[in-house]
Nucleic acid binder design. Structure first.
Lengths: 157, 157
DNA sequence: GTCATTTGTATCGTGCACGATATAAGCGAG
DNA sequence: CTCGCTTATATCGTGCACGATACAAATGAC
């Protein structure tokens, strides 16, 4: 029942681990975006929602969640805040009262159009050749699709 | 003063953006770790602190923060929770009363040793060749070091 | 020595993330 | 039709992240 069949592992530097690097870079990008998003009055997850709606408007909460890999317990309050901010509207779908359709307001479209200009601005600020950034995007995207497919392990360490 | 000198950008899919992929994969990894960390009674950031302390014990809050790219406003309450859980101890440094030295308790060392076995367990669960994972680690680590060096832009979008 | 400045840590408020739970609408078997 | 089941969204509690603020210890100018 115990776990003493495994080696006592030597010291590990988090900075050499893939998951920590992803964790740290994700937060670092968030901080990097913030001074650009601040004047728009939105947060980084809200920025993602705006882009996702600009990409495909008038969709259910679940559809947004599948694209952004977020559950409704995260999206519901987030969308409520965006509704209060006048960025999105929410309406019950007529033929299925369970569904809530989220759509950009006029103001939301305006902010989303400005938000859509940001990625180019960001990439040009980074001190890394574009080919490397493309390669990073490709491999991290591959990780995303892989992790979306497989189930987490159940074995205790 | 305005921003109408930029092109109206066409639609953008978040899934094609580097920053979203990093954001999504970071959360996905967190979810992936959780069922393994749960029996140890720790969260993912606490797991990182245990590994960092196992790598170099008896260090100040700021030293931990620099390694994990976290500020004290995140670490202080986190370390307090870990102290309550009996994983770490905190003592004021004698010759500089501002500094707080964090160290692993006996129980903390035990949990950290088990935590150190996890990365291998995780990597073996992933459906991706090891060379690709190494390549991912290398390029994301490069992004981390780059973002740690440069300042965020100040230009509004 | 004295006081302004810097350094190291902690506290507070807000907004995610997410597990657990709730609830209401659709759906299906009988 | 009705009851059980699934689906879609919302709510609540906890723990991060992080900007803003506070404060005490160290440092330095004088």
């Amino acid at each position: 029942m115990s776990q003493n069949n495994a080696e006592a592992p030597e010291t590990i530097d988090p900075q050499a681990m893939l998951c920590f690097n992803l964790y740290a870079v994700s937060h670092a990008f968030n901080r990097f975006y913030q001074p650009i998003l601040d004047p728009l009055g939105i947060t980084y997850p809200q920025y993602l929602v705006l882009l996702a709606l600009r990409h495909e408007d008038k969709r259910g909460v679940g559809s947004l969640g599948r694209e952004l890999m977020l559950d409704t317990n995260t999206l519901s309050p987030l969308l409520k805040r965006m509704e209060i901010a006048g960025l999105v509207g929410r309406t019950r779908q007529a033929d299925d009262e369970r569904r809530v359709l989220v759509h950009l307001t006029e103001r939301g479209q305006e902010i989303a159009a400005r938000a859509a200009q940001i990625p180019d601005c960001i990439l040009s600020c980074l001190d890394m050749p574009e080919s490397d950034l493309q390669q990073a995007t490709e491999i991290v995207s591959r990780l995303r699709r892989m992790l979306a497919d497989i189930d987490p392990p159940k074995t205790p360490a």
